[in-house]
């Protein structure tokens, strides 16, 4: 098992190298560069910029050089731990990404825990009380949850909060904590704001996972080992939790790997609607403005999280199911 983890970690740099080439190529794929969209934006705003100045900027940012040179310089800087400078913000990328990445990870983790904490019990309940009134109720709620786009839910909740309680529930911080340095009070403020986006982001996944757990558990409940446990005299709830549920949640754990990147990109619209200081809107802005170093760096971080997420889910699966052998993977 240790060997497996080491092997996978050793593989990570190679994967990142491939991801970096692909993401850089993708970002460069649209015609023009950062300056073209910069000029277009200025023009749209009614101002213009001197052609000579543009060429000077282009030379300064190295945008006039061949693409592989640009790529080489970016990767070279990354290897030295320098995430580069955002062309648009004229600030170091690390500064731009830093706190947003932390907040995104915190929010994602909370949504994931919320999803599991709600979905798995609902799935277990629905399976053990199949075709009961509550099972039907959960099924209906699940389908509504699946069918509701989460930004829609965000809008509805924001409206309800504003209309009924007179509170504005956007962002992750109260105004006085927005740019404050980290302190326990700020963490507390974050916690008092995070629940709404947590629910909004978690709901769709909840519905999905509850369905998966219900279906899997129904399969497992009819297996002879469940009946054998019952025949031993185990109380019903104890045997359900101990035996079939452990099998039934394996697919849930195995999706952990792509849950993170999915939530990062899926949460984008919600982040925009609720003006959450997460990384999604920053990436969107960077892509629209062809701010290539910023966009590339964010995408690379996503890829790394996806790979690490997959590794974590593989390890969890082995802990869950001794039949899985990592060495053969």
């Amino acid at each position: 098992m240790h060997w497996f983890i080491i092997k996978r970690l050793l593989l990570l740099p190679f994967l990142l190298l491939i991801f970096s080439i692909v993401s850089f190529a993708l970002i460069q794929a649209p015609p023009g560069d950062f300056l073209t969209s910069y000029v277009a934006e200025l023009a749209a705003g009614g101002t213009s910029i001197d052609q000579v100045e543009i060429e000077a900027l282009r030379a300064r940012y190295g945008l006039d050089q061949p693409i592989y040179v640009q790529y080489g310089r970016w990767v070279g800087n990354l290897l030295r731990g320098d995430l580069g400078i955002s062309l648009e913000w004229r600030r170091p990328n690390s500064e731009l990404i830093g706190e947003r990445l932390v907040l995104t990870l915190v929010l994602t983790t909370f949504s994931l825990l919320f999803t599991w904490a709600v979905a798995i019990p609902i799935g277990i309940f629905s399976a053990t009380r199949q075709y009961s009134l509550l099972d039907y109720l959960f099924t209906i709620l699940n389908y509504i949850g699946l069918a509701t786009p989460n930004f829609m839910l965000a809008l509805v909740l924001m409206w309800v909060a504003f209309d009924k309680f007179g509170v504005t529930v956007t962002g992750l911080f109260s105004p006085q904590f927005l740019d404050a340095p980290w302190s326990w009070a700020r963490v507390g403020d974050l916690m008092s704001h995070i629940w709404l986006p947590m629910i909004v982001l978690g709901v769709a996944g909840t519905a999905q996972i509850a369905r998966v757990v219900r279906a899997n558990l129904l399969d497992e409940l009819s297996k002879p080992y469940t009946e054998m446990a019952r025949a031993k005299g185990l109380p019903e709830w104890r045997l359900v939790i101990k035996y079939p549920t452990r099998v039934a949640i394996a697919p849930v754990v195995s999706t952990l790997g792509w849950y993170f990147p999915q939530l990062l990109s899926g949460g984008l619209v919600v982040s925009v609607v609720m003006s959450l200081p997460t990384i999604g809107p920053l990436l969107l802005r960077a892509l629209v403005g062809q701010d290539m170093y910023l966009a590339g760096t964010i995408i690379l971080i996503f890829c790394m999280l996806a790979v690490l997420g997959a590794l974590v889910s593989d390890i969890l699966l082995v802990v869950l199911d001794p039949r899985i052998k990592l060495e053969s993977a």
């Binding site: 297996k223 080992y225 054998m228 452990r246 099998v247």
Partner: peptide, 12 residues
């Protein structure tokens, strides 16, 4: 039981 294979939980 009838099926000794399936009557033990494979995870324990």
């Amino acid at each position: 039981p009838q099926e000794p294979m399936a009557s033990f939980s494979p995870l324990h």
